[in-house]
């Protein structure tokens, strides 16, 4: 089936079987391999992308369902030159080790802080409980997200500069 959507600012048209997940479409057809598949049954959160402003598990979404949507993947959050404040906070707090869950953490936290820049630690933990990290123990991830709030409270600073 022909499907048309916007990914990271580019309008793309792809021809996929209905059974292809959005995650596989992004990875295999569009070569956006930053979106990771850790479980393919909607538990680990590594495949989280942002569809029309909302964090979504791309392993539980068909590519054909995304027709007409606007999608942001981890690749779409930063430009070539710099880390975003959220990404920089992750690095500063050592909020990633193997890096596999990281794209899902970043997209989820970005969606959360965009909507709720004042999210407290409890809310951050609540939201991130849908993303599994096996390396960090989550403590530094929560610290990083909390630190990044300031940039989202002032949206001009949330992009990479």
């Amino acid at each position: 089936m022909l499907v048309k959507f916007n990914v990271n600012g580019d309008t793309v048209e792809v021809d996929v079987e209905p059974r292809v997940s959005l995650a596989d479409c992004l990875r295999d057809v569009l070569h956006l391999t930053g979106t990771h598949l850790g479980c393919e049954h909607g538990v680990c959160g590594a495949c989280t992308v942002i569809i029309d402003g909302e964090a979504v598990r791309s392993c539980l979404t068909l590519a054909v369902q995304a027709d007409g949507a606007t999608i942001v993947t981890v690749e779409g959050l930063s430009n070539d030159n710099a880390l975003t404040p959220l990404q920089a906070a992750f690095r500063k707090h050592h909020a990633l080790q193997c890096g596999f869950c990281t794209p899902g953490m970043i997209t989820t936290a970005h969606a959360l802080l965009t909507e709720e820049p004042d999210a407290d630690a409890e809310r951050v933990r609540d939201v991130l409980s849908g993303n599994i990290c096996r390396c960090t123990g989550y403590v530094p991830i929560v610290e990083a997200v909390l630190e990044a709030r300031a940039a989202y409270a002032n949206p001009d600073k949330a992009d990479a500069s």
Partner: peptide, 9 residues
């Protein structure tokens, strides 16, 4: 019910 991303769908 479930988690943030699931709750969005």
């Amino acid at each position: 019910v479930a988690h943030y991303q699931i709750r969005n769908r």
